[in-house]
C-alpha cells in the first residue's frame, strides 16, 4: 500500500489527476442538489417581488448592516413560533438577493415584523430607540430621516435582479421610479393605480415617515419592514402538501 502511494506522491501529473477526482466527488455531492433547489420551495400563495420602494429599503437595510443584529428567519421551534409567529418558509425569501436570514440575534427576529408596529413608532424608534425600548442597545439611525432615498437608478436594480430569476416584468422596470414615488404618496395623481396593478392591491401605499415633500430613506426602510412576513398566505399552508 505504502509503496503504491509512493508512486502517486512522486508523479505530479498523476497526483493532480487524483486530486481532481477526489475533489469532484465532494463537489458533485454539494453542487448537484442545488440544481433541484426549486423542489425545496413550498407552494404558497401571495409571494411577490419587492416593489421598487421596498427594494430601496432593503438596500438601506443591507448598507446599515441591520442583518448583523437582526435575523429574518423564524425556525420551526416552539419558542420561536410562540414569540414571532409562523415559521419562515423558503418561499418567503426566494426573491431576496442576497437573502437576509442572518445568523445572530442581538435584536429580535424581523421576519414577521411587518404590520406589527405603526409607521410613526418605526420613525421614532429609528431616531431614538431607547425612547421606546429603554433596555435596547440599538444605535440611532436618525440620519435616515434626512437622507433622500436613492431611487434614481432603481429601474436598473430591478433589471439586475431579473437576471437572477426575480420575475420583474418590463413594465415594472420601466415604471420603477414612478412606482416608488407613488408608494410613498409623493407621486403624481393616478400613478398609484399603476403600482397596485403591478404589485397587487395589498401593496401598502402611505407616507411612511409622516413627512410630506420628499422620499427619505426612512420611507424606504419602513415600507420594507412593514411588508416583511406579510406576503405569504399562511392560513391554508400545509407543509405536508407537495406540488
Amino acid at each position: 500500500m505504502l509503496e503504491k502511494h509512493k508512486k502517486l506522491e512522486k508523479n505530479s501529473i498523476l497526483l493532480l489527476i487524483f486530486i481532481i477526482i477526489t475533489i469532484s466527488i465532494g463537489g458533485l455531492i454539494e453542487i448537484v442538489p442545488l440544481f433541484r433547489l426549486e423542489t425545496t420551495i413550498e407552494p404558497v400563495k401571495g409571494i411577490r417581488p419587492y416593489t421598487p420602494l421596498e427594494l430601496a429599503g432593503q438596500d438601506v437595510y443591507i448598507r446599515e448592516g441591520c442583518y448583523g443584529c437582526h435575523s429574518q428567519q423564524i425556525r420551526a421551534l416552539r419558542d420561536e413560533v410562540e414569540r414571532y409567529g409562523h415559521y419562515s418558509l423558503a418561499a418567503e425569501s426566494m426573491y431576496d438577493h442576497p437573502f437576509q436570514w442572518g445568523s445572530k440575534r442581538t435584536g429580535p427576529d424581523l421576519a414577521r415584523v411587518g404590520g406589527k408596529y405603526s409607521d410613526s413608532w418605526h420613525v421614532q424608534h429609528m431616531i431614538n430607540p431607547q425612547e421606546y425600548v429603554p433596555e435596547s442597545i440599538m444605535p440611532s439611525y436618525s440620519h435616515m430621516a434626512t437622507s433622500k432615498a436613492s431611487l434614481d437608478d432603481i429601474g436598473s436594480h430591478l433589471e439586475a435582479l431579473r437576471v437572477t430569476g426575480v420575475p420583474y416584468t418590463d413594465s415594472m422596470i420601466e415604471n420603477a421610479y414612478t412606482d416608488a414615488m407613488a408608494q410613498a404618496n409623493e407621486g403624481e395623481a393616478n400613478t398609484k393605480d399603476g403600482l397596485l396593478k403591478r404589485y397587487g392591491k395589498n401593496t401598502i401605499v402611505r407616507d411612511f415617515d409622516g413627512k410630506a415633500g420628499f422620499v427619505s430613506e426612512l420611507d424606504a426602510i419602513i415600507s420594507y419592514l412593514q411588508v416583511l412576513g406579510t406576503m405569504a398566505d399562511l392560513k391554508d399552508y400545509n407543509p405536508d402538501v407537495v406540488e
Binding site: V32, T39, T40, E42, D240, V242
Partner: peptide, 22 residues
C-alpha cells in the same frame, strides 16, 4: 435527483420532519 414526489430528499422510515416535531 429525480424527486418529483419528494421535497428535498429521502424521508427516512420515521418520516421525521421539523414541522412534525414542532
Amino acid at each position: 435527483i429525480s424527486g418529483d414526489s419528494e421535497r428535498g430528499g429521502t424521508k427516512g422510515v420515521m418520516e421525521w420532519t421539523q414541522y412534525k416535531q414542532l
